[in-house]
């Protein structure tokens, strides 16, 4: 328990230092850009795939349920759009990105730690906060919301395909329902993804830099990073949603 609080305190310090460093020190833009490309490369195909199938299964479920109750499919586009944009898009994308880019990030930083590459930074005019953390924080902050938009779109398209081909739902009706989505609904999902982005990259970086004990330690740190990140995303999602709702961002 004491260890948990020490860890948490250190993690908060690292977060604070990273954020101050973004505003007070020179930013390594090359590395930042590299990271954005890397996160995109690693996660975009997965995110699109998961988004599409989530949309598809959702359309199927809503369609079949409404058929069994009302004898016809109704509100497929509407229920799909809201669930995707508000919840499934940001949350599922964050979970997928945690497993892919987050895990890779912890493993990379952990390897740098146990092979003394982190130590080497200090005598070469750098240190982990500005060379490792800052670029990755910015990269995640920029990338995740974009990935979420991709997931939203592929989910809506996936849903459309199933609604039309499998349930004979009219395309025009589907689009009409989608168009009721307001800017506030979108911002709800995107705001959440900004917070999740910081959560994922923070946990990934911190677990990486705290890695101890060789290759085995890197494996452990990576698993820990993924598990902690997933739990935090789901728990934070509830409280964040309540907060946004209380501000009327629905």
């Amino acid at each position: 328990m004491k260890k948990f609080f020490i860890n948490f305190g250190n993690a908060v310090m690292v977060f604070y230092k990273t954020i101050t460093s973004i505003f007070t020190k020179r930013i390594e833009w090359d590395t930042t850009l590299e990271q954005i490309v890397k996160i995109g490369n690693e996660s975009l195909p997965l995110v699109i795939l998961c988004g599409a199938f989530t949309g598809m299964v959702f359309a199927l479920q809503v369609g079949e349920t409404s058929i069994s109750i009302f004898n016809e499919p109704i509100y497929i586009g509407l229920s799909l759009a809201y669930s995707l944009v508000l919840e499934l898009g940001p949350v599922l994308t964050s979970l997928v990105v945690t497993g892919r880019a987050g895990a890779a990030m912890t493993a990379e930083i952990g390897t740098m730690k146990v092979t003394e590459q982190i130590d080497a930074l200090y005598t070469l005019g750098s240190e982990p906060i500005s060379y490792i953390f800052v670029p990755r924080f910015i990269a995640f902050f920029v990338s995740l919301p974009i990935l979420v938009l991709f997931a939203d779109c592929s989910g809506i398209l996936g849903g459309l395909v199933v609604a039309k081909l499998k349930l004979g739902y009219p395309i025009s009706k589907y689009w009409e329902e989608i168009r009721t989505l307001g800017i506030s609904t979108f911002s709800h999902g995107i705001l959440k993804s900004f917070v999740f982005a910081l959560l994922i990259v923070w946990i990934a970086c911190y677990n990486g830099i705290e890695t101890k004990g060789g290759a085995e330690g890197v494996g452990k740190a990576t698993t820990k990073s993924v598990v902690v990140s997933m739990v935090f995303i789901l728990v934070t999602d509830y409280f964040l949603t309540s907060l946004l709702l209380s501000f009327g961002i629905v």
């Binding site: 990379e108 092979t115 003394e116 590459q117 005598t123 005019g125 750098s126």
Partner: peptide, 29 residues
């Protein structure tokens, strides 16, 4: 710390960079 140069036991080269970028690392900063 910039007064020091250190050759680590395992060399500790940055494995995401090539030889040129490794040697240039301190020069750039």
């Amino acid at each position: 710390q910039t007064k020091f140069g250190m050759l680590f036991q395992g060399a500790a080269l940055f494995d995401s960079l090539n030889v040129y970028e490794n040697v240039a690392f301190g020069l750039r900063r």
